[in-house]
């Protein structure tokens, strides 16, 4: 966990942990389903029809569920090449800018994925073989994306409030 300082942060941290765990469960389900399908295909000429689309749909949910955890750990990679000699304070200002931009971008993405899902729902688009509604993966991406906005916002607030080192990884 990135910060042990404040209780709301801890709750948020636990949410990010939970999100990653959910993503991992979906990933395990994908792995299991695919394995069953390959065995079925190889030995019984009977794969799971639509295994590929399940991987696609599930993969989107996995990634969205993982994103907030990455940001919580401050693991979205930065180039420190040019700023190693900069003072802690100016590095802090730059990180605030970076986190603020991250939050804004994720908010934009959250909004647009939500609208995209609504559009797909209205168009009644479905997956080719399993006939699953395609708005579903869009909807299931939203909690992860929302958590990205939340964690980014909270990190910004903390950096403003606590000054340097408040967000040591």
């Amino acid at each position: 966990m990135s910060s042990a300082s404040s209780p709301p942060g801890d709750a948020l941290g636990r949410l990010c942990d939970a999100s990653a765990a959910i993503g991992a469960l979906v990933l395990l389900a994908i792995a299991g389903m695919t394995t069953v399908s390959v065995i079925g295909r190889a030995f019984f000429a009977q794969p799971i029809l639509g295994d590929v689309e399940l991987v696609q749909l599930g993969g989107a949910v996995v990634v969205a569920s993982f994103l907030p955890y990455t940001q919580m750990r401050r693991a979205n990679i930065i180039v420190d090449f040019f700023t190693t000699r900069a003072s802690a304070a100016s590095q802090q200002r730059m990180d605030l800018l970076g986190t603020a931009l991250y939050t804004a971008v994720m908010a934009l993405v959250l909004w647009r994925v939500a609208v995209g899902g609504i559009d797909i729902h209205a168009a009644q688009e479905r997956s080719m073989l399993m006939d699953l509604p395609l708005w579903l993966p869009y909807a299931l991406m939203l909690p992860g994306l929302a958590l990205c906005v939340l964690i980014g916002g909270v990190q910004c607030v903390r950096m403003l409030r606590d000054g340097p080192d408040a967000e040591g990884a």
């Binding site: 993503g23 991987v55 696609q56 993969g59 989107a60 934009l108 994925v113 995209g116 993966p137 991406m141």
Partner: peptide
């Protein structure tokens, strides 16, 4: 563009190898 682009990128079958091999 953003309505579909993000889903389009994270739902690529071939890219699922990344989280799977990571795990």
């Amino acid at each position: 563009h953003l309505k579909g682009a993000v889903y389009g990128r994270v739902s690529v079958y071939d890219l699922s190898v990344i989280p799977l091999f990571m795990l």
